[in-house]
Structures are given as structure tokens and as C-alpha cells.
Design a protein around this nucleic acid. Structure first.
Lengths: 346, 346
DNA sequence: TTGTAGGCGTTATCAC
DNA sequence: GTGATAACGCCTACAA
């Protein structure tokens, strides 16, 4: 069923059908009614592809994320979807699944489909296809994960500043031996590890400017495989010995939560013997005891700013170039307390 | 940049460019190299719309869900996306947000875009656009939420059977006064409430076949607004008085978890004074104490069956018509224990 | 080995 | 008011 079929059935030309379909002026009322009736009877719907080809508009936005099982990404997707739906756009969501090759192929797909705008949490360090998209003139906004050397919009969180502030807070509580629980290096080394790097840099800065030697602080890499373990595994050594830290700053909440439950089974009390901080303030934290001291990642505002930048770019018909930085606020709860020398002696 | 531009630049016809682009035989090696070089230099990518229009294929699947903030929907989306991506299809995800009108508009959008297949958790009771999609010959599979009178595939969970089994288990523990915590009726009345109805029917059946009067059981509607409350609110009366129930069967886990925390503040111990069961076995349950006795919703298998049915339909070029029923298994944990008359006396 | 013409289903711009 | 006709960018078939 095409516009031609409708035209033939009604004994008119497709130009007339088109007029009837779009409530254009200059058409006989009865002709129009006849056409509208036929359209309804045969359930005719204009083909998006042909229409889009003729008008030059796709009214489609591409959103490329690592996943949506992470609650934060799901929320961001939902916000972006709703906002663009209300403006008449359809959101095309793609999941890279932390796979650089898949991200590349999805970007090509978005170019092929001529999306009107692009939002991406880039995973790939060599953004070939992303550069193609930009070269093709698609308004693009980087979200949360920065990538240097691209002339596009970006909405980022001041990861470094946030962790530095949190670390200073930990130091102000009298802790002098602090461990840093880093993200997964094998991931970090291959992919775009902006967030890991910045957070660790924040920690190092704060420690150094407190006159302490960053090298004396303990650092460990967290491996996702640990999630399945019941004990501290390779990390058990980190919290024992004379030089054991009295506080640990974690790359993100999930690591902190994991640590919390493992420390419990290992008999290391939080916060009495070890103070703990996280990053993100994820929803699952509500039922955790002791309540986790962390940094609240401003995901809602990130989504809002992404939308604002992209809409501006699309409407102006040019590449957004602004770089927006948002702050992650400390949320002081129970898991991090003042250093107490007596509790450090077993 | 179009195929014509490339052709002009290389001094050949667009037919030749097409051959070079698709590795077709019968083309001079040097001509091909020249074209490939130009394509790369100018970053040319064929337009999906034109290509799709000419070939008649969209290689696109539509997936229509209420939301993705629900972890289960996020997981299902991820599984479906991965599976179709590997088969060369692109998943178009749409969120109805429990809005019947939005669902309708999204279905029309999918028809307009001529998707090759459709998966839907239908919210609307009068599926006008869904019927259009089916009439248009789009292979369609209903997921989790049934809708009568449609000649399409469906993957459903035996909600009724599962709740009946759970209720029998509760009865077998000696409980004779059982409350049922129903879903939100204002939602249920307006939308497709297959799941609510079936689960409640399962409860009623089990109670009746135990020789007890279903009418004597207490039933209450759970209102999502309660999530914000600190107390039991309008539900407080339900658990007090001489006829107070000794067990409560909940429509789903989130209600059970909410109830658990509110009962705790109200001084009603679970499971000592009130036994509790849920439905779904959501991930957040891991850290809940007492561990919740519930029914495990087989979401992974649901996704697998949906994919199987839809792929079969697409490959055979016909509407899948099979109706697949999957079982939800009881997971016995701590929240539901044998009836103990002494603990019932305050 | 290459070029040309027609078609996919729309919209837009002319005449009549 | 209405009907032809030329785009939009690609693919396919047939002709050269």
C-alpha cells in the first residue's frame, strides 16, 4: 500500500493525496474526505524512508552508551528519550557493551541513517568513526567520558576536583595512611579511561598537597572478577600489617560496597578500623549499613545539559563546542569517621 | 557526498561505483582501487534510507517497553539487542512509560519505519495500532503481558500457576488468615492488567481450593505513592486487630520490600509475626534481611524465547503464532515461616 | 568492463 | 483544485 495505490483507488493523482494527507490548502473538501476514508480503510501509512529522503529530515537522535543495566545510564537514557520525544525526535539507542569495535560499527550505522544529532559516552580511544560523524557535520555531544582533540560539545563531571575534595576531607579527619581502590586497569589501558585517570589524579593531588608522599599511599586495582568472591582475595594483604591504611578511597560505590561486605567477613570493622568512601551515590546504597560517605554524581543535570547543548546545535545547524563541567557533591554519611589510634591496634 | 559525487570525481558512472562498493565481480581492479580511495578520502557512506528503499530491507527490529529503569527490562533489552546485532539487525528501542497514547504513537512510528519485526510489552488495552502493525504483516511477539484476540506470537509467564503454588505453600505452613497485596488498581483499571489479574486469580484459586473462603482473606491495593512514606499509611489497619493476617502474599518484590521496612518500624516482626512472600526475585533482594521467599521470574528465558519466535517468523516471512508459557519457580528463603500461634498474641 | 534507464515512495514545483 | 514531473540517493537489469 503506497501513496500511488491510494491515488489510483481514489481516481486522483498522488499530488492530491499528498495534499489531503498533510492538510494543505487548495483541495476540494469532498475529494479530501474520500482520500482520508481510503487511507483509513487500507491502513496506509507513508513510508518514513521515502519521506525522509524527500524532505531531508530524519528527526532521529543517536545515543551511544556502554550499557543500560547500569541504573545511571538507564536513567539518563530515559531523560533524553522523553525530552526528544516531546520535541518530535526519535531516539536511537545503541549499546557498545564496552566494545570498541561495536562502538565503531554503531557510529557508522548512525552516519548511514543520517541522525540529526549524536550523544556518546565514548569507549574507544581512537575515535575514527566519531571523527567521521563530526566531519559529516552531525552535531555531537560527549557525555561523562572526555576525549581530547575533538571540536564537539561535552558535558563532564569534575571528577578530579571531587575526589581531591573527598580525599582532603579524609585527611582532615586525621587519616595519614590511605588506600586508593582503582578501577580495572586491563579495561583502563585499552579503552578511554578519562574517568579513572581523573579520579586517581584527584587523589594524588590532595595527598601531595597535604605534604604526604603519594607513593607511600597504597594503591590497588579492583578486578570485576572479585565480585564473585567471598573473601578479599588478592586484596587481603592491602589491609593488614603494621602499615595498614586507616581509610580507603574507592573509585566508585560498587567497589566500596563490595569491600564493605568482604571486610565484614574478614572481621575488619567499618568505620571503626577502616574508613571508606565511594563515588556516584547509586540508588542501591540506601539499604547499606553503615551508610556510605560518597560523592553524588549529578546524572540528572548531565542529561539536562546534554539535551540543551545538542538542541542548540541542531537548531543552529552547527556543531556545539561548549564544554560544560558539573560538580559532584560530597555526601557525608557514616562510613568515614575520624582517625582513632586505639582502634588501629588489634 | 553521494554516490553520484563519487562517480563524478572518479570519472565513472554510479553503476560502477556501486559495483566497487559491494565487491561485485566484473570490475577493473584499478578502477575499483581508484573508487575505494575516493570513498575513503571523502568519507562517503551510502544513505541507509535510499538503500533500504531500493532493497526493501530495513534490518531493524522494534522493541516497545514501558521503561528500562526497571532492571529486568534493561536486562531483557540488552539480551535482545545483542542477539539481533549478531544477526545483522539494529534494535529500535521505544519507551511507552505506561502511557497508552505514547505506545500508540510509537507503534505507528515503527510501522512508518517498516521494521522487520516487533516485540512489545503492551500497555494499551485497545491495541489499535498494534492491529495495524499485524495487518501490515510485521512479525510480532507479545512479551510478558498478554492481550487477547491477537493472532501473534507470545511469550508469557504462568503467573497464576506460580502464585497459586506459592499460596499453597503458605497454607501448608499453617497460615489461615492471609493478606494479598495487590498492584495499583488505578493503573490496572485503565491499562492492560494481565499480570495483576492472573496473579490475584492464582491466589484466589489456591485459597478456595483449600476450602477457605477467599472473601475472608484480606486484600489491599498498593499505591506507588506509598514508596515515599515512612509508615504503613492506609495499610496500617490491615495488619492489626484480632483478625490480623499471619501472612501476606505480595504482587511483587518491591511491594514486599517496602512492606518489610515499614513493618520493621511498626514493630511487626517478619517472619515471627508476619510471613511474607514476593514475586520476581529482583537483584536488589540480595542484601535484604530477612531473605525474601519469592518466585523467580524467568526473564532470561523469556528473552530467549522471544528472540527464537521472532527470528523464526522473520525468516519464514510469516506471523509467529506460537504461545510459549514459562514457569516461575519458588525460591524458599527466610521471610515466610510456619504459623506459630503464640507469636500471634502481642 | 562499463554506462544507462527505471524504480523504490515520498515531497515540491510547476503548469493547467 | 488538480495533475504531471523532477527531485531525494540508492540498487538492479539490461544494453553497449
Amino acid at each position: 500500500m503506497t501513496i500511488n495505490d491510494i491515488a489510483r483507488i481514489c481516481g486522483v493523482s498522488k499530488g492530491t493525496v499528498n495534499r489531503a494527507l498533510h492538510d494543505k490548502p487548495g483541495i476540494n473538501k469532498e475529494t479530501k474526505e474520500k482520500i482520508v476514508a481510503a487511507v483509513r480503510e487500507y491502513g496506509f501509512r507513508p513510508d518514513y524512508r521515502a519521506k525522509s529522503l524527500a524532505t531531508g529530515k530524519t528527526l532521529t537522535i543517536g545515543l551511544l552508551l556502554p550499557n543500560i543495566e547500569n541504573q545511571s545510564f538507564a536513567m539518563i537514557s530515559t531523560m533524553i528519550e522523553r525530552e526528544f520525544w516531546e520535541r518530535g525526535y526519535f531516539l536511537n539507542l545503541a549499546l557498545s557493551n564496552d566494545d570498541a569495535a561495536k562502538e565503531e560499527r554503531y557510529l557508522e550505522l548512525f552516519i548511514d541513517r543520517r541522525v540529526d544529532g549524536l550523544v556518546i559516552f565514548p569507549v574507544n580511544r581512537e575515535p575514527r568513526s566519531l571523527q567521521s560523524a563530526i566531519a559529516a557535520g552531525i552535531p555531537t555531544v560527549l557525555m561523562l567520558n572526555d576525549l581530547p582533540g575533538l571540536e564537539v560539545g561535552a558535558v563532564l563531571v569534575e571528577e578530579r576536583k571531587a575526589v581531591a575534595a573527598m580525599t582532603r576531607y579524609v585527611l582532615s579527619l586525621g587519616h595519614e595512611r590511605i588506600a586508593y581502590l582503582d578501577g580495572f586497569r586491563r579495561y583502563t589501558e585499552r579503552y578511554n579511561d578519562y574517568i579513572n585517570r581523573e579520579r586517581f589524579a584527584g587523589f594524588s593531588e590532595a595527598v601531595a598537597s597535604a605534604g604526604l608522599d603519594p607513593g607511600a599511599m597504597r594503591t590497588a586495582e579492583f578486578d570485576p572478577a572479585y565480585y564473585g568472591r567471598d573473601d578479599l582475595g588478592p586484596l587481603s594483604g592491602l589491609f593488614s600489617g603494621k602499615e595498614a591504611p586507616s581509610a580507603a578511597v574507592c573509585f566508585h560505590d560498587r567497589i566500596a560496597v563490595w569491600l564493605l561486605s568482604r571486610l565484614e567477613t574478614s572481621g575488619i570493622k567499618v568505620p571503626e578500623r577502616l574508613s571508606l568512601t565511594g563515588f556516584d551515590d547509586i540508588e542501591e546504597l540506601q539499604s547499606i549499613k553503615p551508610a556510605l560517605t560518597t560523592l553524588r554524581n549529578p546524572f540528572r543535570r548531565v542529561a539536562q545539559e546534554v539535551i540543551r547543548l545538542l538542541v542548540e546545535g541542531i537548531e543552529a545547524g552547527e556543531q556545539p563546542r561548549k564544554r560544560v563541567f558539573l560538580e559532584a557533591e560530597p555526601v557525608i554519611r557514616e562510613s568515614c569517621q575520624a582517625f582513632c589510634s586505639t582502634s588501629q591496634q588489634p
